[in-house]
Simulated assay, not measured.
Amino acid sequence: MGDQRKALPFEPDRGKTKSTSSTGKTQVQASQAIPKSVANRMARRVAVFTGLPTIAGMGVFVGSYVLITRGIADIAPGTTLAASGFCFLLGLGGLSYGVLSASWESKNGTLLGLENIRTNVQRLRSSIRAKKQDPS
């Protein structure tokens, strides 16, 4: 008595169709994919939340160089490295945030997308659990 429910967007499709190509290899075709509008929304968010910290990380090197060469400030190399490293780590976090904060609904959602994170993390966890239970 399996309860019929709608598949989650991240969930692997249990009804995958297999086809044999002309080379004799079996190919698996998934019936679900990320909708183009959602993929574009994710790409924009990733570009902003990863791009800005990455640019800031490179800017730390340039700014530090300018301040040191003009004698404005004496900045330790470790400080420059730590500040740029922090910016790059922030950009790495922005990569995950950009994907997980994107709305899967037809409308865009809010600017920061904080309301979508919990839902998308639950979808991701469900997908991982389903993949672990899938014998193929």
Rank of each mutant, 00 (worst) to 15 (best):
G71P: 04
R41F: 01
L92P: 09
R14E: 06
A73M: 02
V66W: 03
S21Y: 14
I75C: 11
M58K: 09
R14C: 05
K131G: 03
V62H: 09
G59E: 14
K25H: 09
V28L: 00
T110Y: 13
I128S: 02
L8G: 07
T17A: 08
T26F: 13
I68A: 03
S136V: 09
I75E: 07
K131L: 10
L100I: 05
N40H: 12
G2M: 04
S21T: 07
T26V: 14
G63C: 11
L52R: 05
K16W: 14
L90R: 08
A47T: 13
N120G: 02
P53D: 00
F88W: 06
T79A: 08
R45A: 04
G57L: 02
G91C: 05
S127R: 01
L52Q: 06
F88Q: 01
F61V: 14
G91H: 05
I75V: 12
T110M: 14
G85Q: 00
K18W: 12
K16E: 10
V46K: 02
G113S: 07
A47L: 07
M1F: 05
K132F: 10
A76N: 06
A30L: 11
G113W: 10
S64C: 13
E105S: 00
A130E: 09
V99C: 15
L124D: 10
